[in-house]
Design a binder for these strands. Structure first.
Lengths: 132, 132
DNA sequence: ATATGTGCAAATGCTTTGCAACGCC
DNA sequence: GGCGTTGCAAAGCATTTGCACATAT
């Protein structure tokens, strides 16, 4: 049901060599650069499938763009992401998990999931001094 | 510099009577229903201004849509939101604030901000039993 | 052989913007 | 009166989809 196409391999290849969160368009361009051209629609479709299968993590940026990453940790975790270059640090927050679960339960919410991501500028992209 | 127009008042009015997170389009429609028609572009522009001024909170849903709400607590806080109706519970997580700050600092990230929202189904919208 | 995947281009949906008319201060 | 504001419609963007063609199994 899930075929082994050249395109799929190309996308997985880009993902496996990418340590940062990247948009579909960036991944598309990268595959293209690697000489493994893939249609943009295919990139979207494949990423969607991978995300659905839990093989890649998806984050929605403040401006509504989805960015993807093949994470090292298969378990549930969160991210510290550079909003400039996508550089990422994975981390877990077990206390938090429990905490949010209780919060949801206390208010009778079901089928919950939470987002908890930290966006900032990594050491290499610290904001230029805004000297007047 | 910020004028008192009928439109602005209409939008603020809708917001003040709205306890849930709503999209710009929903707010636009509501104003319209209230007999206080406002152009959609104006709604977007006004919400953007209000958000920038910190007078309303903005959340980005999983599908990239922005939803707005005039929050009771002016201080930094988080939300438990019903993904079906927008119903919201505000809450704070002081331990978390400190926690994320340290996490960012430890990795040399600056100018950070974090998102931490819980999405689920409120008691009134619990998923229909998926009985086979 | 056949269902699935792919590519293109058109369509979608949210949001932004150009520009002339409008109205607060 | 002047400058921010509004409205409309067009433009912009990321993403999705229809459909004919290619291809993995």
């Amino acid at each position: 049901m899930q075929r082994n196409t050249r395109q799929r391999a190309a996308i997985l290849d880009v993902l496996s060599r990418q340590d940062d969160f990247r948009s579909a368009q960036q991944i598309h361009e990268q595959a293209r650069t690697d000489g493994q051209g893939v249609g943009l629609a295919t990139v979207y479709r494949t990423l969607q499938a991978l995300a659905g299968a839990g093989e890649v993590d998806v984050l929605v940026t403040d401006d509504g763009e989805s960015i993807f990453r093949q994470c090292a940790d298969a378990a549930h975790h969160h991210h510290l992401v550079c909003r400039e270059c996508g550089r990422t640090v994975e981390f877990q927050a077990p206390e938090m998990e429990e905490w949010t679960r209780q919060m949801a339960a206390r208010h009778g919410f079901t089928d919950v999931h939470h987002t908890m991501e930290i966006f900032g500028l990594c050491p290499d992209h610290t904001a230029p001094a805004a000297d007047a």
